[in-house]
Amino acid sequence: MHQKILIADDEAGIRRLLRGYLEKAGFRVTEARNGKESLERCRAEKPDLLILDLMMPEMDGLDVFRAVRQESQVPIIMLSARAEETDRLVGLELGADDYVVKPFSPREVVARVRAVLRRSTQADRPVRALLQAGPIRLDMAKRTVTVDGEAKALTTAQFDILAALMLEPGRVFTRLQLLERIQGSAFEGYERTIDVHIKNIRRVLGDSSVKPRLIGTVRGVGYRLLEG
């Protein structure tokens, strides 16, 4: 069955453009014209991925995002006319899987959709099904994470970053290398978004950037999983 994409944007032209390219790529597409409708459709239709515009009437995109995240871990790609890095980082800070700035290339959006969906499925998971590092236990098959037996919720991007680090403890990954793991190709302009993902992973796992026990920072290079 083809995967379903929900496009939530108040601009009919944007919805029409993305629908055309996504359907041509083999996806099923449904649409929402405002924030309230997007939340209702997300609950009723349970899409495989949500493309969510931040500036919509009736309910702001960020409010929709927060409401969806309380109920589901569906992958979310944010759309915004705001190109500032701080806006992009805020979206990722909240747990978005990707952030696309308008105007955009529809082909790039399709590529981003495929990359995010690839991360959220189990098709490319490593042979090792269970990974353990100190109190962290990561189940690749079920895509679950526990710390001292307590379940923790990670987005698909956060899960794959943590998996990459846990598969090779001690190895230093550059930001671009981690970005390539979660996007399929490295976009240098988004390199710093890895810092936001790491910050969120640390918060969820109860780790600290000042005195890290789990994920260490290698200044000027990237990150590694601490051993021992």
Results as ranks from 00 to 15, higher is better:
29 V>Y: 06
100 V>K: 01
39 L>P: 03
83 A>F: 03
96 A>N: 00
165 L>R: 02
143 R>Q: 15
220 G>M: 10
42 C>D: 07
16 R>Q: 13
58 E>F: 07
114 R>V: 07
134 G>N: 02
185 S>T: 15
118 R>P: 02
134 G>Y: 07
35 G>H: 04
60 D>C: 10
78 M>P: 08
169 P>H: 00
103 P>N: 07
30 T>H: 03
71 E>C: 04
8 A>N: 05
5 I>H: 05
21 Y>V: 07
117 L>W: 06
149 G>P: 07
142 K>M: 14
15 R>S: 06
73 Q>R: 05
3 Q>I: 00
50 L>F: 03
160 D>L: 07
176 L>H: 11
156 T>Q: 12
26 G>H: 02
110 V>M: 04
69 R>H: 04
129 A>I: 10
67 A>Y: 09
51 I>Q: 06
193 T>C: 14
191 E>P: 06
49 L>I: 12
38 S>A: 15
37 E>Q: 14
135 P>H: 08
227 E>C: 13
125 R>Y: 10
45 E>R: 03
105 S>P: 00
184 G>P: 12
102 K>Q: 02
150 E>P: 00
132 Q>P: 00
18 L>M: 04
12 A>W: 10
120 S>R: 06
72 S>N: 01
168 E>A: 14
61 G>L: 00
118 R>E: 14
44 A>E: 15
99 Y>S: 09
58 E>S: 08
217 T>G: 06
215 I>G: 01
192 R>N: 13
48 D>F: 10
93 E>C: 07
18 L>H: 01
88 R>I: 12
146 T>W: 03
7 I>M: 06
140 M>H: 09
148 D>Q: 07
117 L>M: 11
115 A>H: 05
72 S>D: 14
2 H>L: 10
93 E>T: 00
91 G>R: 01
197 H>L: 14
208 S>M: 03
8 A>M: 09
1 M>R: 04
141 A>F: 12
6 L>C: 12
183 Q>Y: 12
222 G>L: 02
201 I>V: 11
47 P>F: 09
137 R>F: 12
169 P>S: 05
106 P>T: 04
140 M>A: 15
64 V>C: 10
74 V>A: 03
191 E>L: 13
190 Y>A: 14
148 D>N: 13
136 I>D: 02
66 R>G: 10
10 D>A: 00
44 A>H: 10
106 P>D: 05
193 T>K: 11
187 F>H: 10
